[in-house]
Amino acid sequence: MNRLLVSPSPHIHAPVSTRSLMRDVVIALMPAVLVSVVFYGWSELLVLGVSVASCVLLEYLVTRFLMKKPSTIGDLSAVVTGILLALNLPSTTPWWVVFIGAVMAICVAKMTFGGLGQNVFNPAIAGRVFLLISFPTYMTHWEMPKGLFGADAVTGATPLGVVKEGLLQGGKLSELISPDYLQMLLTNIGGSAGEISALALLAGFVYLLARRVIRPHITLSIWVTVAVVALVFWLVNPERFTGPVFNLLTGGMILGSCFMATDYVTSPMSVLGGIIYGVGIGFITMMIRYFGSYPEGMSFAILLMNAVVPLLNRAFHQKKYGRA
């Protein structure tokens, strides 16, 4: 007979672990990864490879040699950070810039706070924003999608970049762009790798919802806010401000709202807090897009709202049984 095992209840556990949740996120990101590799080719594969490998390696080194604890790479969170970081970078980013982004993401934004769960800011976004500020040339140098075996790369600006540049020079919107929304939804928007296909990202988002990995309230509140803000401004002056559909489908909107803003660690715990957080992200994004000097504001908005999360967690609690 075995020695009896004794522990407090409960004695069974749901088939869920940090690792399984992260694995689901990786699976959910696969359509976007595939599309980006197909459209940007080997250079994108290199960015992805360097990003994931350096994130995992850095986390291993930091946990084993600086924190002197068992390595935590098994939870796959570093893989998720690596993929998200890569999807946030242009495919033309040199490998060493990617590596610096990974150092920022893992070593500074994640591990200095104590590792997964302790960080205040989303590591991938922190890495991206650091690179955006430090290496603006590399980070705004977009390659037009060309396909895995396509000809030489053509570089260009993202739709949002085109708009910002044109408006700054006093142009009118109707002259600057003639957006093809269907194409935006499917493929072929210039931008960082992860922005290429809204549909691929949405497929991953639906997978996460179906697997109950995340709840939809944050993402939906971002979308609603962006749509409402854009609609109001667009109705006021359609020549100066872009419309809601354009704003929902361009830039890092889908990637950010589905995968970055919903990061467990850096989003509020309560549903109400999450909605406020989402509204904040949507509003700040639109303000930066309309009035800021950067064409895209998603990552700044998420980063700013990350800082507010502890306050939201303090202010909003979930409804308790039998208490008014």
């Binding site: 004695h11 556990h13 935590t72 969170s77 104590g114 590792g115 769960g117 660690v265």
Partner: peptide
């Protein structure tokens, strides 16, 4: 079925 897995960080 019942052995508890090692505790890791709260991922909130």
């Amino acid at each position: 079925q019942t052995r508890r897995a090692p505790e890791s960080n709260c991922i909130r």
